[in-house]
């Protein structure tokens, strides 16, 4: 029997304005505990400015079996890729 508390996915923002990136997961019984555990497990060396925690059960994920249908059609259409213009010098975070 799984006696662990509920699973939560943790997203860490490294600096203000940056996107939140998935860091891993923690077990917790409630939001507060999930945030505190995420803080203690993933940010204790001071590498964060923000944290999100989301119940793993609340995440809708694509199915591996659907990969062809989902992702394949985009691969051979080069015109979909924004590779035809120069990124201006000085533009960050693109």
């Amino acid at each position: 029997m799984d006696t662990q508390l509920a699973l939560w996915e943790v997203f860490v923002q490294s600096k203000p304005g940056q996107p939140y990136k998935h860091a891993g997961s923690v077990h917790a019984s409630d939001k507060q505990m999930a945030l505190q555990n995420a803080r203690d497990v993933y940010t204790r060396r001071g590498e964060a400015s923000g944290l999100w925690v989301v119940r793993a059960a609340d995440i809708a994920a694509s199915d591996l079996a659907d990969s062809d249908m989902f992702f394949e059609p985009a691969n051979d259409k080069i015109y979909r890729h924004p590779t035809f213009y120069e990124i201006p010098a000085g533009a960050k975070n693109i």
Binding site: Q4, L5, V26, H27, A28, Q36, N37, D40, V41, R44
Partner: peptide, 11 residues
């Protein structure tokens, strides 16, 4: 009592 709380207490 579990890994996360272990880390919390040691922190």
């Amino acid at each position: 009592p579990f890994l996360e709380e272990d880390l919390a207490q040691t922190n």
